[in-house]
Design a protein around this nucleic acid. Structure first.
Lengths: 212, 212
DNA sequence: TAGATTGTTAATCGATTAACAATC
DNA sequence: TAGATTGTTAATCGATTAACAATC
């Protein structure tokens, strides 16, 4: 088990497996074969077995996979057995929307703080978390053991703020700003570029139309 | 030029090229070589040239690429020369946040309507767009020539609503619901699964820690 | 013309799929 | 034991990178 050698392609598929397994679990289904899961998820059974075998054997020949067990294993691989404390930088519409989104907590992603430069927002409370000025970030991160930051600020300040976050010891950033962050190796970044997604849709739309 | 044969891997990189070219354009830079762009974007010059050549030759030997021209070409490839009318289904926190986000309009993605089942929201206005009940969707889509729907509703109703949207003639869906939509071939779907992104961060965090 | 840099072919690398022996 | 299905090796496919001839 050499975690670093597993490709991001595989890691990227794990949350989807987890989702389907959670649903199966809720339906009270005990076991599933790679072939059944294959039909359900519309990926090859081969890929499913290969993916799972990156982490050791979770199945049993002639039986398949135990849903509950597999769910637990993937959940642990994804580190969901651990709690993550996170802060949201930027308490605008998107920041507030995310702060209001309860489902993250269920997975162990606990929103601890909200920060914004706009004085009009300071003291405003969302789900018990009050918006603080940016300059209190450093202090807050130290006392609250924050490991993930969610960036929902405009791209003009995102790079600079990300550098500060790194300096203050952040381990991972979920970046909604439409810019590439420049962080040292070892700091994890996931980008959510909504306009990129729209552009992909746009391409495939016009592409499909040309086919006709 | 056979649009359908271009891999989604290439398409997925186009918006990022466009972003860098836009920045270069704003800086008043006229030409750039694949090697310079390579350094800037941290991808290989080879990949850049391969990507662009999927669509025909945009460059000139010995010179490089004209920034303005390349920007226009990629913009057109992505279909950004055309306007897209879109509706947001689900006027909760996220739906409102997206409706308030001005930048989409600049790219030709015009938010025309907002729909929600919650009567408390009906008539509420965001940037001049009032929230309508879901049952007015069909009529609205017909009279407003809507091609993209943004789904920001809970996963319990997302699949059902997506089917209706398809029935009413939607061409593309940007899906924020944490569920896989089941749409016919030809209907474009882009998923934005925020909890999946957090899980990937979580994996890479624990993975990195194990390295130490 | 000489230098630079593309467009494009060929080589490599990695990811996906197929096949089957191992084994429950 | 016979049937089913995994774990794993081998084959294929596609995407990335390297190399270089074409050409501005």
């Amino acid at each position: 088990m050499e975690p670093r050698e597993i490709s991001q392609a595989v890691i990227g598929r794990l949350p989807r497996y987890l989702r389907y397994l959670g649903d199966l679990k809720d339906e009270g289904i005990e076991r599933i074969s790679s072939q059944e899961l294959s039909k359900l998820m519309k990926v090859t059974a081969s890929q499913i077995r290969q993916d799972f075998n990156n982490f050791g054997g979770f199945g049993q020949q002639g039986y398949g996979y135990n849903v509950e067990h597999l769910y637990e294993e993937i959940s642990n691989i994804l580190g969901l057995d651990q709690k993550h404390q996170l802060i949201i930088i930027g308490a605008g519409n998107l920041g507030q929307a995310l702060a209001n989104y309860m489902n993250f907590e269920r997975r162990g992603f606990i929103i601890k703080g909200l920060f914004d430069n706009n004085p009009a927002l300071h003291g405003k409370t969302i789900r018990g978390i009050s918006v603080q000025p940016m300059d209190q970030m450093e202090e807050f991160m130290k006392t609250n053991n924050i490991d993930i930051a969610v960036l929902t600020i405009p791209k003009t300040s995102a790079v600079e703020i990300a550098e500060k976050l790194v300096q203050y010891g952040i381990k991972a950033i979920l970046n909604f700003a439409h810019v590439d962050l420049n962080v040292p190796a070892g700091i994890q970044v996931e980008n959510v570029h909504l306009s990129d997604s729209l552009m992909k849709l746009s391409y495939n739309l016009s592409c499909y139309n040309k086919e006709q």
